[in-house]
Design a protein around this nucleic acid. Sequence first.
DNA 1: CGAATGTTTGATCCTTGTCAACTGCTGTGG
DNA 2: CCACAGCAGTTGACAAGGATCAAACATTCG
Lengths: 243, 243
Amino acid sequence: MRYSCRSCPLRKQEFFAPMSGDEIQAMQRFKVGELAVEAGTPLLMEGSNSPQLFTALSGQGVRYKTLPNGRRQVITFVFPGDFLGLQAGVMAEMQHSAEATTDMLLCVFDRSELWTFFRTHPERGYDMTWLCAVEEHFLGESILTLGQRSALERVAWAFLQIWARLEALGLRQDGWVPLPHRQQDLADALGLSLVHTNKTIRQLRNMQVATWSDGRLSVSDIDRLEEIAQTERDEAVRLRPLF
Amino acid sequence: MRYSCRSCPLRKQEFFAPMSGDEIQAMQRFKVGELAVEAGTPLLMEGSNSPQLFTALSGQGVRYKTLPNGRRQVITFVFPGDFLGLQAGVMAEMQHSAEATTDMLLCVFDRSELWTFFRTHPERGYDMTWLCAVEEHFLGESILTLGQRSALERVAWAFLQIWARLEALGLRQDGWVPLPHRQQDLADALGLSLVHTNKTIRQLRNMQVATWSDGRLSVSDIDRLEEIAQTERDEAVRLRPLF
DNA sequence: CGAATGTTTGATCCTTGTCAACTGCTGTGG
DNA sequence: CCACAGCAGTTGACAAGGATCAAACATTCG
């Protein structure tokens, strides 16, 4: 039996203790509702202080920061299960923006209720800390990539991460996973120019390792991809909780 | 009156509710002791699963990851007040290493007690989440820097961050703050080569903006530094908690 | 049909990396 | 005491990875 907040799974049963009936009720009070947004809709704005927290249910988006000169850095892609807006809940305001790349369905929580929820259900503090450590792990990997990997290694690494994550989410069908972003988005995530990103993607296709076109990413030689990306398959990617 | 875990301040009173007598007692049981290490000592090892958590009390160090080909990425510099080893407490093992650059004094906690502590003092889950959001903010800034800033911008940004942080810690004396790392460490943190980092530091010195030599960083024109780094002074840097 | 958006490709430039050599300093052992 | 090794910092010459510029192509949408 799986406990869940209707369509919004609170967590994976494999990794967390099941919730009591009381907790489920509290969770449902905590949840405000669902929100459907169209592609291109801004979800969070840098400098704002939105009263809401989101969990992505379906669709994809990006979290990003911008420099005064206009350059944009994509921090992470947003996939189903990702949690958005915690910063504004804790710090004075958001430090990054987020935008829907495709149509998205979001699970909306009321920020002010978050602390009430944690206070009445203290063991969830562990969950949050866990979530935090996992997030920190991924950001650290990004830093490693941006700082030390070559263009080819970066793209291979990104494909590998995305592939593993979406596969773990059960979004693999036939030989591909959905990756509806623009090449510009990947370029901004990897700190590369659009042109060079394009040429590097092509290189991976020519090597018959991975192909990304029409919003579909397919990896045909995952071992080779790991070799190129200088990384071992990351088990942690599968552990990301669905809060 | 300030409550504290002896020399290890649990938190800044400005941002957190004071602790009850019970909590202080629990905190002292949680604390195992202090640890003095020499410069060069490894504190955490990637892939290991150390049973301890640390808070830096004095001295400086680095947290870093390495690629199979040997390249090293410094994730953050470790300053007094920084918390180390949470990952291993939550995930299976550490995902990065840490090393003391100078002699350091550390406050040691027992990992297994952490959860007990949080369970008995649930409101500290908030603190941990807060700490997490702040950390995430800084890692996000690093990603922005590595992805989008030029070499000169990167070094200026780093100097600014370090200056603000150490100043907030009260470590500024006369016109300088202590920065005992090697140029190689900064290079590895910024994703630049040693040689180019050296030349860029020199450039900032020639511009009479900032000087770093003999382990002392002095900023003579902080406004200019912000301009170059493409950033506004970051208030968040001052909010980092001393857990 | 034209406008807008995204992808692809080639040519050229430049920021940064790599290589190499030299300095100054410190610690060590003959 | 000096010779020497080792390490961090410094500088110049050169190479290269990736950025920028420019233009063509494909799709979609009004």
